[in-house]
Design a protein around this nucleic acid. Sequence first.
DNA 1: CTATGTGAACAACTTCACAGCC
DNA 2: GGCTGTGAAGTTGTTCACATAG
Lengths: 206, 206
Amino acid sequence: MAKRDEVPDIVIGRLPIYLRALARLAAGGWEITSSQKLGDLLGVSSPQIRKDFSHFGEFGKQGSGYRIAYLREQLTAILKVDREWEVALVGAGPLAEALIRENPFAGRGFRVVSVFDRRPERIGLRLGSLEILDAQRLPEVVRERGLKVAVVAVPADEAQEMVDTLVEAGVRAILSYAPITLSVPPGVRIQTVDPAALLQRMAYYL
Amino acid sequence: MAKRDEVPDIVIGRLPIYLRALARLAAGGWEITSSQKLGDLLGVSSPQIRKDFSHFGEFGKQGSGYRIAYLREQLTAILKVDREWEVALVGAGPLAEALIRENPFAGRGFRVVSVFDRRPERIGLRLGSLEILDAQRLPEVVRERGLKVAVVAVPADEAQEMVDTLVEAGVRAILSYAPITLSVPPGVRIQTVDPAALLQRMAYYL
DNA sequence: CTATGTGAACAACTTCACAGCC
DNA sequence: GGCTGTGAAGTTGTTCACATAG
């Protein structure tokens, strides 16, 4: 039962969370789970989880629950992370270095394949196994490799310009670490990581 | 008109975004703005913004709009970021290093005052001006300094343990970079930064 | 005439509760 | 008996539209 027709974005946003939890359950040796168990683990109600899944199909067995391996397959396919997207990393500062070193995208559908910086003193250096390229070559490389995904880790004043360049070159999903709201044309997605904003949100309750 | 009685958390979550935009407007020399202008800048509807503010008071002038300086004062006070919260940073890997070097919390109400790591080879080293302390001393330092806020940047398997220790020592707001759902008791807030989850969320639309 | 602040109308999301299947 | 999948009910959040103030 399900059309992928108009699934609310808020539901899409929870699928990666479910995937995270399922990966851990699988790593812990579990093969089966239930909406109840998953919900307890995540602080989400069990009907919420069942309703979320129901937008895409019927993944469980009544009476027993969900086979974890199968559910992961389904969710990764829905999110299109059952493949590895090549990612451009724009900005080669300390944060970019941390991203390359700790690689939080590993095993989650993304792999950084090229790094760019505009500062002459950084161009040509290596970050992990990647050579830092001149930001001027960004459009060329994005187009040649057909990159659709990028991570932006440049100062706030340069971010919009970089985003415009990326979009122009064909990128359609951008993760930005610049603490500003960026504008993109329809059909392009952008998400901002703003740790200070998250702290401020929590400070209200202190 | 307003009780701060029961303001929806989703509204609280937007205040830092408004603050970000106001800071930029102020930096650009603007003194006055309107819900319309702010909304255009942020991709939010103008009634949304007015309604959000109305939970806390009346900050504007009919006919003219909002004085940016005054609005910033009010919002920082509401979020309790009109002061500087001292923050414990747990985990001294590359990500922690990037946080210290790029300091995304500067000017936004938070300052990292101590860094901890459990690995003997890292203890005693410096990160910026801070000496990396033995994670064993965490409860002691948190208690002595009365820290209420912490950032967790340790591997996923160690995160829950660190969170428990922090909470036990009195921390009440935690920002975690571990890609797992962590559990905290009532009265303690936690937010997770999971860049891979954000990318996965966007991948759905590719 | 412009732009806020806000009840009332509307839309979106979540939870309930139960039929149906394992 | 246990747990899913799902319409219907309930709740929460957003937008409208206008009275009101500058």
